[in-house]
């Protein structure tokens, strides 16, 4: 459609009727220009938002590095995070570690379950079953994250305690595993919904060819449909991991705020998002190194998720080029 009218704003072709010969009235032309300006401005606001994010995070991060005297290298790879000590230490490797623990742990839950549900929905499910299950899974995606966080502390953590304490393993009130479980559940719908779209879009002819050669449904699903839609599945995996990295409330409530680089999932950890929340809710004024550090952590978080999102888009586009 946009190719058909590519010059803004338009003027109707002059009809032969002398009544119309003067063209549209001045008011109409002004209205056209005004509307065009408003719509363009709206579209530009979205670009300004991105620029705003980059400028805010960039400028304040530079201020952080100047005020605190920490080098970007020491910031990213330092293993000690003690903003209250004198001199304060800002090494965010424990935060990156905590974020990675959540990302890996929730992926272990969400990726297999999400992929299997996607295969079920696209290959096995009857039309009516699908019409019921798909919206239900989407409902799971619409539950606010604070609800998941609440359930992690009121349901999952007590359950973990009941399971592990009799075995003599201590479970901290705030622990990584509880957060991993709820974040995993939270991102299942992302994986299943996007993967299912891609798997159902695999051309029917490929399946028919497999059945024609005598393959069973299992073989067609796993050796023909899945490899054909693999890039879409991988894209959904990357998006889900990016979402887990940016997840805040469930992690803040369930995983606590103790930066650590332990491998024990039953201990408390702190993620980048949890650190940002902890800094804002603490007593400190703007301009202090501790307060400014939230922008630097935010910048790292922004770039991490941005890279993953771009990567996912690239992987998905390769698939689209192959089949559409």
């Amino acid at each position: 459609m946009s190719e058909k009218f590519s010059q803004p704003p338009p003027s109707p072709p002059p009809p032969p009727d002398p009544h119309w010969a003067s063209g549209p009235s001045r008011g109409l032309i002004l209205q056209e220009w005004g509307v065009w300006g408003f719509l363009l401005a709206s579209a530009v606001i979205t670009v300004l938002t991105t620029m705003g994010i980059v400028v805010v995070l960039g400028v304040e991060s530079v201020r952080f590095f100047q005020v605190s005297g920490v080098s970007p290298f020491a910031f990213l790879f330092g293993t000690e995070l003690e903003p209250e000590s004198i001199p304060p230490k800002f090494g965010i490797l424990p935060l990156i570690w905590g974020t990675a623990v959540i990302a890996v742990g929730s992926s272990l839950i969400a990726l297999p379950i999400g992929l299997l549900s996607a295969i079920y929905l696209s290959e096995y499910a009857h039309k009516r079953v699908r019409a019921f299950l798909k919206p239900t899974l989407e409902l799971l995606a619409g539950v606010p994250t604070i609800v998941y966080g609440y359930l992690a502390i009121s349901l999952v953590t007590p359950a973990l305690k009941a399971i592990f304490e009799p075995m003599g393993i201590t479970v901290n009130t705030f622990n990584a595993m509880s957060a991993c479980i709820v974040v995993g559940v939270m991102i299942i719908p992302m994986v299943s919904s996007l993967s299912e779209d891609v798997l159902s879009a695999v051309p029917r002819g490929l399946r028919e060819a497999g059945y024609g050669l005598g393959a069973t449904k299992f073989e067609v699903s796993t050796r023909i449909v899945l490899p054909a839609g693999l890039s879409g599945v991988v894209a959904s995996f990357i998006l889900a991991i990016s979402r887990a990295i940016g997840e805040t409330m469930a992690v803040v409530l369930a995983a606590g705020s103790q930066p650590s680089m332990s491998l024990n999932p039953l201990r408390s950890i702190e993620t980048m998002t949890a650190y940002i929340v902890a800094v804002t809710s603490g007593e400190n004024s703007a301009g202090t190194p501790k307060n400014l550090s939230l922008y630097a952590v935010g910048l790292a978080l922004f770039f991490l998720t941005l890279i993953l999102n771009i990567l996912s888009g690239l992987v998905l586009r390769r698939y689209r080029e192959a089949y559409q």
Partner: peptide, 17 residues
């Protein structure tokens, strides 16, 4: 491209903005 990427920015980053 910008809108597609904005959709994936974590909500806490909007909070910082």
């Amino acid at each position: 491209i910008n809108i597609a990427n904005l959709a994936g920015v974590p909500s806490i980053v909007y909070g910082i903005l």
